[in-house]
C-alpha cells in the first residue's frame, strides 16, 4: 500500500513511454542506424585490419613476421623462385604485429573481412592469394 501511494502516478513508466514513442515517431532521432548488411556496407577506416597483403617486390622473405607472430600464424613458404609469407587466417589474431615489424614495409592489412570459408585448408592463404604488385596497382 505504501508502494502504491508513492507510485500511483507511474510517472517513471510514463516518462519511459514518452521516450520510446519519440523513437517510434523519429522525433530528434535518426530513424535507423543499422545497415542492411549484405546489400549495403559500412565504410571502413583506412587503418582497418583485415586480410593481409604482401608487396611482391618489397618482401625479402626474411621471416621476421614469422618470428614475431604471437600465434604462429605466418609461415614462410617458397613461391615460384622467392620466399613469401603464408598466413593461416584461422589462427590469425589480426593484431597487426607482422605489419609493424616488417623491415621492408612489405606486409600490410587490407579491408577484406569476409573471410569465412568451408574448409580449414582454404583458410590458409598462400602467397598466391596474398601477393600484390605495387607497380601494377598504382
Amino acid at each position: 500500500m505504501a508502494w502504491i501511494s508513492k507510485n500511483w502516478t507511474m510517472s517513471g513508466i510514463i516518462k519511459g513511454l514518452i521516450v520510446t514513442l519519440k523513437h517510434v515517431l523519429h522525433i530528434g532521432n535518426r530513424p535507423t542506424v543499422t545497415v542492411q548488411y549484405p546489400y549495403e556496407r559500412m565504410k571502413l577506416s583506412p587503418r582497418f585490419r583485415g586480410l593481409h597483403a604482401v608487396d611482391e617486390n618489397a618482401c625479402i622473405g626474411c621471416g621476421i613476421c614469422e618470428v614475431n607472430c604471437p600465434n604462429g600464424t605466418i609461415r614462410i613458404v617458397k613461391h615460384n623462385t622467392r620466399w613469401y609469407p603464408q598466413v593461416n587466417i584461422g589462427m590469425c589474431l589480426f593484431c597487426g604485429i607482422c605489419v609493424d615489424v616488417c623491415p621492408m614495409n612489405a606486409m600490410k592489412m587490407t579491408g577484406n573481412y569476409e573471410l569465412a570459408d568451408y574448409t580449414r585448408e582454404s583458410l590458409i592463404y598462400g602467397p598466391d592469394r596474398l601477393l600484390f604488385n605495387k607497380e601494377v596497382k598504382q
Binding site: L44, S45, R47, F48, R49, L93, F94, C95, G96, M109
Partner: peptide
Amino acid sequence: LQLFEKLCGARMTFN
C-alpha cells in the same frame, strides 16, 4: 567502435 576502428583498425581487439 567506429572511432576505435578509425584509430587503430580494429573494433574490439585493439593491440
